[in-house]
Simulated scan of single mutants.
Amino acid sequence: MSGLLLSDKNAVIYGGGGAIGGAIARVFAREGARVFIAGRTQAKLDVVARDIAAAGGKVETAQVNVFDQQAVEKHAAEVAVAGGSIDIALNAVSVMHDQGTFLADLSLEEFLRPIDGFLRTLFITSKAVAPHMGRARPGVILTLSEPGSKLAIGGILGHSVSAAGKEAFSRVLAAELAPSNIRVIGIRPHAVVDAPAAGSYTGELFEPMAAAGGQSVDEFLEGGLAQGTLLKRLPTLSEIAETAAFLASDRSGAMTGTIANLTAGALVD
């Protein structure tokens, strides 16, 4: 076990039944972590848990509404008791929102939906796990954002502001939690090419834009968005999960307050 990246670590993943959360949970378990996956839909959590258990990994599930602060804090305390600590936390919760609508036709509700939704869950989950992390055992909080945090294109006002907010949140939280031996690192993938096939909400998100161009979602991703990257392709679930495992491990112990750019060169920092 000593050669595994996350041997004897306890990791909690919110949105652990989703495409990205599930992929990361599987890799964390493979790398030796005891994985606690939480989310709104028990059936999705069970699918991930079965895969992990079949591969010999350690996993527990919990149906938790991440918008319920009291429920999230109760779950985090239970995880800390069961595992002895929380060493890694990841928020992979999805919030359906608008992309493609310009200001003139964008409602205030649609503008605020991703900002309130994503940042509310990020605040709630971070606040819940932080008291159970760090000090004698290094802690890591991983966050997810999108290239919209940096892009200046029309039609993504709410999406862009929410992505930038998540990155700012991660940066400032890293400064606050560093004295407690807790690192905070953001991961910024682009649209994930195989996520829709894995059940991600992005299939529904991108469908209107793809249809407007007479394309399928796969064509929109592989022939459209991918061509705007340096590598002429989009990141995969596997690449995101493998990177997350490294960032959560002690091998990246000098990294905090930064963003890992997994956009395949859509953005060059």
Rank of each mutant, 00 (worst) to 15 (best):
L177D: 10
A178T: 09
L142Y: 12
E110L: 12
K74P: 10
E73C: 00
N65F: 00
I141Q: 07
A76G: 01
R171M: 13
Q70P: 09
A76Y: 02
N91W: 04
R135E: 09
A163F: 02
A130W: 08
L90D: 01
S162W: 07
F102A: 10
K58N: 02
D87E: 10
P114Y: 07
N181P: 00
P179V: 14
S170D: 09
I182Q: 10
I86D: 01
P138V: 06
E176N: 13
T125R: 08
G117Q: 14
G84F: 01
E110T: 13
E146M: 03
T143N: 13
L157Q: 11
N91A: 00
L122Y: 08
T61F: 12
N65W: 03
A178H: 12
F123C: 00
L177A: 07
V59T: 08
G139I: 02
H75I: 04
R120G: 03
G83F: 04
G57M: 02
I141T: 01
A71Y: 03
N65T: 05
V95T: 05
H132N: 09
R120D: 12
K74L: 10
G154Y: 07
G148H: 14
R137C: 07
S126R: 03
E176S: 14
A164N: 07
F102Y: 10
P138D: 12
E110Y: 14
S149Y: 02
S107R: 12
L144D: 05
D116E: 13
E109S: 06
R135V: 01
L151Q: 13
N65L: 02
T121G: 03
L108G: 01
T121P: 06
A82E: 05
N181I: 12
A174R: 00
A174V: 06
V64P: 04
G57E: 03
N91M: 00
V79T: 02
P147Q: 00
A175L: 15
G117F: 08
F102P: 07
H97P: 05
D105L: 03
G155Y: 11
D116V: 09
T121W: 08
E167Y: 09
V81M: 11
F169Q: 06
S145R: 01
I153F: 10
E167N: 09
A128G: 05
M133Q: 08
Q69A: 15
L177R: 06
A77N: 09
S180Y: 12
A62Y: 03
I182D: 13
I182K: 05
F67N: 13
F123S: 04
V95E: 05
A163N: 10
V140D: 13
V81Y: 08
V59K: 06
V72I: 03
G84M: 02
G148D: 14
